[in-house]
Design a protein around this nucleic acid. Structure first.
Length: 863
RNA sequence: GCCCCUGUGGCGGAAUUGGUAGACGCGACGGAUUCAAAAUCCGUUUUCUUCGGGAGUGCCGGUUCGAGUCCGGCCGGGGGCACCA
């Protein structure tokens, strides 16, 4: 009878052994192939959640597997430690962001260590460490000197009561989350990174990243949003030209629809709108109304489309007698193109809605392929597809595509426009009017302008003596911090009080892991060896911004000679994993209940304290507000880290969400016991693992086939990120091994069972590493199996002499035949056609066609 | 609103390239063991059926000898939308 496996004693024992042997510390560069495995580093919220467990369990599968496969593995961990939650904690609870953050890091690290991950903690850092942000300031200054950083005004959400800038998430229904005041947009002078300089390269290269999910590549391409079209200058009619300039420039992808134009719409904050608002209260009021929408694209797109006639007119570029009204409209973005569009209502739904609302003409100019020019009309639905141009003078009869080119040619001839490419991608605004971030290392002097802080004065440190009792930026109101001397003239000057967007911190941390304490941002030789990251793993919610910014940073750092990469691509392979979800529960009086507050009684769920029935709600992402979280630390204490890891990987494909269930975890726990039993029940006197095998009998060969096939399948599944399939294979394999325990213990069978146990120990290392070590020790293996070598499968054991093939008649399965594995198509066809169950369905009919896919299927077409 | 993804038994899911739909796990049911229970072990478990077979991968249609897989349309769920990380 096998003993029980006790995780409480074995797990700490093996973690201590790994730590003592230092097997997870990446060595110096050597002859082995390298593998840099990285999971997105966490924000130190203070508690590990199940989403973390899943993310890091996946990374650990890859890192440990690569180690066994003989790679020199770098698998580091750090902390994305700057950000708003620390300041919120400071405001709500009076704790200092620094203390709060480092306490959280300490608490989370303790929880992390319980998981038994193969992390190289010797390289740990936090982005709020002055040693880290000092290097980030160096990068900022290098980018400044390279011309990749500049200042311009841009819009922010402004809370007029708290007198502070709000993040989009701090704006709830157009109101400040604390003050409840209606949010305004305000313009501030801010710092920008010139990411648009790399727009084409970022687009071209992302499409080539074959080991990235297709959907992420698409999302990035759409985000960059390259579109070809034309810029068109519409001459302003009359006196207005003197005040507002000769013409209004618009960008369009559809110059073919120019003859359908019925209005121009410019942004509420376009220069012309601003100028007119100065002495027109109606326009000023409209501007103010638009400002309430905030800065998010979502809010702008969802808002009802509003406009106001500005009272000025422009001439149509192809017909000087045709005058068109100019509106300001809330759906026009000042940051895209030139902040102005022309409306061609018949060919664009938004323009059509706008035209109907304000009584503007709707002239169809594109005739759909099967439509009749006499009867085709636009009512409430615009026609946006291709077709033939009509009602359009010299463009008549052309296809939409040819008309686009013809229109551009004509515009260039008239010098009223030209072909152009525009990007949706905007430059990256990095200024934040907040304390807990990397200070922007510049000094503003009235005489000398804005200059970088000299290198020997870096880092510009955050002051510790700050308060959060009043809203606003503590750096701005600190009594002394911003006062300094100009690095050029030495006179009195002011520090920049904005800090950097925390996305900057996470845009290069991976490169820092190559040499985390170097006195340059990145050590050239070590970065050349370790970069790029071979496998990056994280949530799909970072598909656009974090990954795009990191790709920009690598290019910028390369062009500033800070990193010796040619490609500029930081992540060779990317995997995006799904979330951990859980059922939600509500009490009789409609309050959320946590899983601990309920119990099962007589086939129904009741609330423990009241005994009243509990309603089961939808399965949702674990969150504190829904009280459907499960604490990893408790699970680890009850079932062990191995079981927690096994479960989060077992039930769903890694890229999809996994639903946490108590019964599922219990199933994983039973399985761990079963594995232990298979190994522990090997009888005394069994041979050692790895010695030459005795002559095999049939039973022993079957065991060996099961082991070698399982190992091969697990290997394939890990390589292709199908961890749930790998786990299913382990289940089948262990079930087969349990059955083999009842076989007579011949020397051959015993040897095969020992081989199986040794294979199993290795195969479990990536998933249940503590149990793997315990099994390895039980069969007398030398050293740590985590530091061992993945076993080699014997090809001869993977193949069978005869295989079974399904036979279909007219696509329906009718029989199963046994054929030699190397049988020819003709032989297979003959066997299939003579099969009794087949002839039952073919007799009396003509065999028209026989399709034989060797090893797969036979399909007989009769009729 | 725009962009992207996703949908298979009671449940999570498997089916790697267009080739036996439902592997593996959970739950449920039946049995063994037990004084009893827990634990463990064995078996059944898509559905209908006249036991021959029929239907079936969100819905409707298409391509193909063959579709969960490819194409078109529709419906439901999720992610992102530039100051949450």
């Amino acid at each position: 009878m096998a003993s029980r496996y006790n995780h409480r004693t074995t797990e700490p024992k093996w973690r201590a052994a790994w730590s003592e042997a230092r097997i997870f510390e990446a060595g110096e560069p050597d002859d082995r192939p390298k593998s840099f495995v990285l999971e997105m580093f966490p924000y130190p919220s203070g508690r590990l959640h199940m989403g973390h467990v899943r993310n890091y369990a996946m990374g650990d599968v890859v890192a440990r597997y690569k180690m066994l496969k003989g790679f020199n593995v770098l698998h580091p961990m750090g902390w994305d430690a700057f950000g708003m939650p620390a300041e919120n904690a400071a405001m709500q609870r009076g704790v200092h962001p620094k203390g709060w953050t480092y306490d959280n890091i300490a608490a989370m690290k303790q929880q992390f260590e319980l998981l038994g991950l193969s992390l190289d903690w010797s390289r740990e850092f936090a982005t709020c460490d002055p040693e880290y942000y000092a290097q980030q300031q160096r990068i900022f200054i290098a980018m400044m000197q390279k011309g990749l950083v500049y200042r311009k005004t841009s819009k922010v959400n402004w809370d007029p009561v708290d007198m502070t800038v709000l993040a989009n998430e701090q704006v709830v229904d157009g109101k400040g989350w604390r003050s409840g005041a209606e949010v305004e947009t305000r313009e501030l002078e801010q710092w920008f990174f010139k990411i648009t300089e790399y727009a084409d390269d970022l687009l071209d290269e992302v499409l080539k990243l074959e080991n990235w999910p297709e959907k992420v590549r698409l999302m990035q391409a759409n985000w960059i949003g390259k579109s070809r079209g034309a810029t068109i200058r519409w001459p302003i009619v009359g006196d207005a030209a003197a005040t507002h300039g000769e013409a209004i420039e618009v960008f369009t992808t559809r110059p073919d629809t120019l003859y359908g134009a019925s209005f121009l719409a410019i942004a509420p904050d376009h220069a012309i709108t601003k100028a007119l608002a100065a002495d027109n209260p109606e326009i000023a009021a409209f501007q103010k109304e638009c400002a309430k929408l905030g800065t998010s694209e979502e809010a702008i797109e969802k808002a009802p489309k509003l406009g106001i006639d500005l009272g000025i007119k422009v001439r149509h570029p192809f017909d000087p007698d045709w005058e068109i009204p100019v509106f300001a409209a809330n759906f026009v973005l000042s940051a895209y193109g030139s902040g102005a569009v022309f409306g061609s209502p018949a060919g664009d739904q938004r323009d059509l809605d706008f035209a109907r609302k304000y009584g503007l003409p709707v002239n169809p100019v594109v005739l759909p392929p099967d439509a009749d020019a006499e009867t085709h009309a636009i009512d409430t639905e615009a026609y946006t597809g291709p077709g033939t141009i009509y009602n359009s003078d010299f463009l008549n009869g052309l296809s939409t595509k040819d008309a686009i080119n013809a229109a551009i040619e004509k515009l260039e001839e008239l010098k009223l426009g030209e072909g152009a490419t525009t990007y949706r991608l905007r430059d990256w605004g990095v200024s934040r009017q907040r304390y807990w971030g990397c200070p922007i290392p510049v000094v503003k002097c009235e005489k000398c302008g804005t200059n970088p802080v000299p290198d020997d004065q870096l880092p510009v440190r955050l002051p510790d003596d700050v308060t959060f009792d009043v809203p606003g930026n503590p750096l701005e109101r600190h009594p002394t911090w911003k006062h300094t001397n100009c690095p050029v003239c030495g006179g009195e000057a002011l520090r920049e009080t904005d800090t950097l967007d925390t996305f900057a911190d996470s845009s290069w941390y991976f490169a820092r892991f190559a040499a985390p304490s170097d006195d340059k941002p990145v050590d050239a030789d070590l970065a050349a060896y370790w970069l790029p990251v071979d496998q990056y793993i994280g949530g799909v919610e970072h598909a656009v911004l974090h990954l795009l910014y990191s790709r920009f940073f690598m290019r910028a750092m390369r062009d500033c000679d800070l990193v010796p990469l040619q490609s500029g691509e930081p992540f060779a392979a990317l995997f995006t994993q799904g979330m951990v979800t859980h059922e939600t529960y509500k009490s009789a009086d409609d309050k959320w209940l946590s899983p601990e507050e309920i119990e099962q009684k007589d086939n129904a769920l009741i609330e423990i304290t009241t005994g009243k029935p509990v309603a089961v709600g939808p399965i949702e992402k674990m969150s504190k507000s829904k009280k459907n979280t499960v604490d990893p630390t408790e699970i680890i204490s009850d079932f062990g880290a191995d079981v927690a890891r096994w479960f989060v990987l077992s039930d769903s494909p890694p890229e999809r969400d996994v639903e946490w269930t108590q019964s599922g975890v219990e199933g994983s726990w039973r399985f761990a016991q079963k594995v232990w039993a298979v190994v522990d029940e090997l009888p005394e006197g069994a041979p050692a693992y790895g010695v030459a095998l005795p002559d095999m009998d049939d039973a022993a060969t079957e065991i060996r086939k099961a082991s070698h096939r399982a190992l091969q399948a697990i290997e394939d599944a890990i390589e292709s990120f199908r961890f749930n399939s790998a786990i299913a294979t382990v289940h089948e394999w262990v079930n087969a091994l349990r059955k083999a325990e009842s076989l007579e213990g011949t020397p051959a069978v015993l040897a095969a069972r020992v081989e199986a146990a040794g294979f199993l120990a290795h195969a479990l290392v990536p998933f249940m590493p503590h149990l793997a070590e315990e099994c390895w020790a039980r069969i007398g293996g030398t050293g740590l199996v985590s530091a061992g070598t993945w076993p080699v499968v014997e090809d001869s054991l993977l193949k069978d002499d005869t295989i079974s093939m399904p036979v279909q008649v007219n696509g329906k399965k009718r029989a199963e035949i046994q054929v030699a594995a190397d049988a020819s198509k003709d032989d297979i066809e003959a066997i299939a056609l003579s099969n009794e169950q087949v002839t039952a369905h073919t007799s009396g009919k003509t065999v028209r066609k026989v399709i034989v896919v060797p090893g797969r299927i036979v399909n007989i077409v009769v009729g």
